[in-house]
């Protein structure tokens, strides 16, 4: 718990210092210190976790987590939008790795293709389009309300982390933290809530990955059966968004007041 709090506090201070401020670029040393400290503490936490299921995936997961967090920090703090976008690609890749560890192959692939391939490309296009001037724009190099922003974000994170850490997880963590929302004895598995016995047995095999086995096929079936209507609606939504985006981007400026 103490470690966790310390991590959050150090992370908060570090991020606060790392946010772009004025012409002065964030000190590399501070940044490095921050990264090392955060990573060390995270590793410490992850190792310090009460003995749960020890899998070979754990070191990979720690590395990917650290990578994702560092990339996220850079996305937030980098004063050049293009670099932010590129760090975001890195973040997406790290995330996809984490998803793979969770045997969400389709989701990981989709994430990479949609985010890194489509959305971020669009972002970079727009950045290129808008970033006509050379050098850094003042609005990129100066954060607004960094202190309050960091405070809000990290207080939230601290509360979330505290809550998560104190949560009893079946089969993993037997120690219920004080005030944790879900004490172990309170957990009541209600079989009637289980949606589908057949699916359940299928999903149960998730933990036994083998060659040629993944969740992709079952996920597809699942989406096109249980979530069929939602899928169609999502399609309609995307269509509408596309039409809307075209309509908005095509709009002429003549009708707008105060056109620059």
């Amino acid at each position: 718990m103490l470690l966790l709090t310390l991590l959050v506090v150090v992370g908060g201070i570090g991020l606060y210092m790392a946010l772009p401020r004025g012409r002065t670029a964030p000190a590399r040393g501070v940044l490095a210190l921050l990264a090392v400290a955060a990573a060390a503490m995270l590793v410490a936490i992850l190792i310090n976790l009460p003995s749960g299921i020890v899998t070979p995936a754990r070191p990979t997961m720690v590395a990917l987590s650290v990578l994702a967090l560092l990339a996220a920090v850079r996305v937030v703090t980098h004063s050049r939008p293009v670099y932010s976008a590129l760090y975001f690609v890195l973040l997406v890749l790290a995330n996809a790795g984490l998803l793979l560890l969770m045997q969400a192959e389709f989701l990981a692939t989709g994430l990479v293709i949609i985010y890194a391939g489509a959305i971020l490309v669009t972002y970079i296009f727009v950045i290129m389009l808008a970033q006509q001037t050379s050098g850094k724009a003042p609005y990129d190099t100066e954060a607004r309300e960094p202190l309050l922003g960091c405070l809000a974000g990290f207080v939230l994170l601290a509360v979330l982390a505290g809550g998560i850490y104190g949560t009893a997880v079946p089969g993993e963590l037997k120690r219920a933290g004080p005030g944790g929302p879900l004490a172990a004895e309170a957990i009541d598995v209600r079989p009637d809530l289980a949606p589908n016995a057949a699916l359940l047995s299928d999903v149960n095999r998730l933990s036994e990955p083998g060659p040629g086995h993944g969740t992709t096929e079952r996920l597809g079936t699942h989406l096109l059966t249980s979530y069929f209507l939602a899928m169609e609606l999502a399609g309609v939504l995307l269509l509408a968004a596309m039409v809307g985006a075209i309509a908005i981007a095509r709009r002429q400026l003549s009708g707008m007041e105060g056109a620059a």
């Binding site: 309300e145 309050l148 922003g149 405070l151 809000a152 974000g153 207080v155 939230l156 509360v159 979330l160």
Partner: peptide, 11 residues
Amino acid sequence: LTTALGIAVLA
């Protein structure tokens, strides 16, 4: 920002 601070306080 105000919303975020409010959420933080609520949390």
